Simulated assay, not measured.
Amino acid sequence: MFYLRQARHPQEVLQHPGVNVVFQPGNSYICGIESRKSVNILQDQGQIVGVLFRPGAFHCYVQAPVSTLTDQVVNISDYFNLDINTFEEQLFALKNKEEKIVIVEQLLQQSMPEHDKTVDLLNEVIDKIVYNADITKVEHLVDQFGISKRTLQRWFNQYIGVSPKWVIRRYRMHEAIELIERGADMTQLAMDLGYFDQAHFSKDFKAAIGKSPKQYAKNND
């Protein structure tokens, strides 16, 4: 991911379940999954090179459950053997985007272990969540994949950094945002997303987005 930061403005992000590695001059970092909506202030001009790992893929660089990175920002040098100042100089001295990609890929491949099939399986589980709006409970995944709830919870904590319930709710919130912007009925929307009533849906929506569904709809009129 490459972009220029120009006019100062807030960028609100409802993050997907992947770890980010971000390179920018003088301020490179690793960002774990943010459990709530994040707000980044973009200003001035500059260049950022970012890598969003697919769910579970950063596990190979962590000697502990990926959940230890959730809601955390840490130094890149804690996980990669490099002098970050020298690497930033080399990276941003390159003018060509493809060359930047190559040098970052070389860094990431230094510590890459053997292929882990559990990561592939967990991505199948997450794809099922993403593309099937009917999945609103962890029990639905248990039925679909024949994996116990306890095992799913353990794998998600170890590899992804958040619970399967969190991932389900996060993607249902992505859908809710889109439907609210289209003018969906709030009560029906709550039922479609697996909630017993609108109050519980509103509580979860506000926890994730920072405002109630009605407030969000009003601000997007």
Rank of each mutant, 00 (worst) to 15 (best):
I126M: 04
G146M: 03
Y79E: 09
Q198K: 15
S212Y: 08
G161C: 08
V167P: 07
H200A: 04
Y195D: 08
C60A: 10
Y159P: 04
N123S: 01
G26F: 03
E181T: 08
G32K: 01
D197R: 11
R154Q: 12
V138Y: 00
I209M: 12
K206C: 12
E89G: 10
A133D: 07
C31V: 08
L152M: 07
W155K: 13
E178T: 15
L107K: 00
K97I: 13
L107E: 06
L42K: 11
R154D: 00
I41N: 11
E98P: 04
Q188W: 09
L91R: 06
H115P: 04
Q6Y: 12
I41L: 14
L52A: 13
S28R: 05
N85I: 04
V49N: 02
S212D: 05
A207V: 09
I103H: 03
H140P: 00
E89H: 13
D44T: 13
S35M: 11
V62D: 00
S163H: 09
S35V: 09
T70H: 04
Q106M: 02
H115M: 11
P113N: 08
V130N: 01
L152S: 07
I101T: 15
Q153W: 03
Q11C: 05
D44N: 15
E181A: 08
A208C: 06
I48C: 06
H59Q: 13
Q47T: 15
S77Y: 02
Q90W: 03
